[in-house]
Design a protein around this nucleic acid. Structure first.
Length: 239
DNA sequence: CACCCGGAAGTTGG
DNA sequence: GCCAACTTCCGGGT
């Protein structure tokens, strides 16, 4: 007689809120994990899983799992999405390329534990920490703190040497990290600006399929070089 | 044998 | 209690 104990066989299934599909879309839309999953052609909802294992780990973390999620098990859900739910299809010949069959707008705005917050975190508004320079580096570090990309791991050995000017000849005033009282309006504008630049970054990357093969930090360098930096427009990334 | 696919059963939250 | 959304296991096909 083994009475049915209350010990759940799958305790890691607790806390299911975000669906897998909305999780994927949030990751893609945030662009903060381009080294794991990225758009191939956003207009066609065509995306690619760059690092399946890392994606599975993110999904497992999203579900607050104790048992590690594997891509194999995620793939089982993908099969149902493709054949049963008809919400996804696989790109022929590409094991890790899929396409959403539903318009992105249908996904509910569920909060992610990763990626771009829909609103600036309240802690940021009260944070006494000095305002960081407005750089892609800091944008990504702020948006995806868990991301492997950090300025200290710059391959050039220059440290955080990305030649970043605050929005180039753009618009906003250069943030001055002085000791003045925190300007909430400025911080909110900075967050908004950061999100806009991430969107521009994604659009830029989507235009050059070859760039999508590069690691994130190199994508950013190309983004700065061709999209922001002065000159180098005739740069042919031959390869 | 390895890999992919899909059925079936189990768990959890709503 | 029912259902949706997975998760896990496993057998069949190629």
């Amino acid at each position: 007689m083994t009475p049915i104990t209350s010990t759940p066989k799958y305790p890691h299934l607790r806390g299911q809120k975000t669906t897998l599909l909305s999780f994927l879309r949030k990751l893609l839309d945030s662009g903060s994990h381009d080294d794991i999953i990225c758009w191939i052609d956003p207009s066609k909802l065509h995306f690619k899983i760059v690092n399946p294992d890392a994606l599975a780990q993110l999904w497992g973390a999203q579900k607050s799992r104790t048992v590690p999620m594997t891509y194999e098990k995620m793939e089982r859900s993908f099969r149902d999405f493709r054949h049963k739910d008809r919400t996804m299809e696989q790109i022929k010949g590409s094991k890790y390329e899929y396409r959403f069959l539903e318009p992105a707008a249908s996904s509910p705005a569920l909060p992610l534990q990763f990626g771009v917050p829909t609103t600036p975190p309240s802690s940021l508004l009260v944070a006494p920490t000095p305002i960081r320079p407005f750089t892609i580096d800091n944008i990504l570090a702020n948006i995806a703190p868990g991301c492997r990309f950090t300025s200290s791991t710059s391959p050039n050995g220059n440290g955080s040497s990305l030649p970043i000017s605050p929005t180039s000849n753009g618009s906003s005033s250069t943030p001055s990290p002085n000791g003045s009282p925190t300007n909430q309006a400025f911080i909110q504008a900075s967050v908004q600006l950061a999100q806009q630049n991430v969107i521009r970054f994604r659009v830029f990357i989507a235009q050059f399929p070859l760039l999508q093969l590069l690691p994130l930090h190199e994508k950013i360098q190309w983004f700065l070089r061709m999209g922001h930096g002065a000159g180098a427009q005739d740069n042919n990334s031959q390869k």
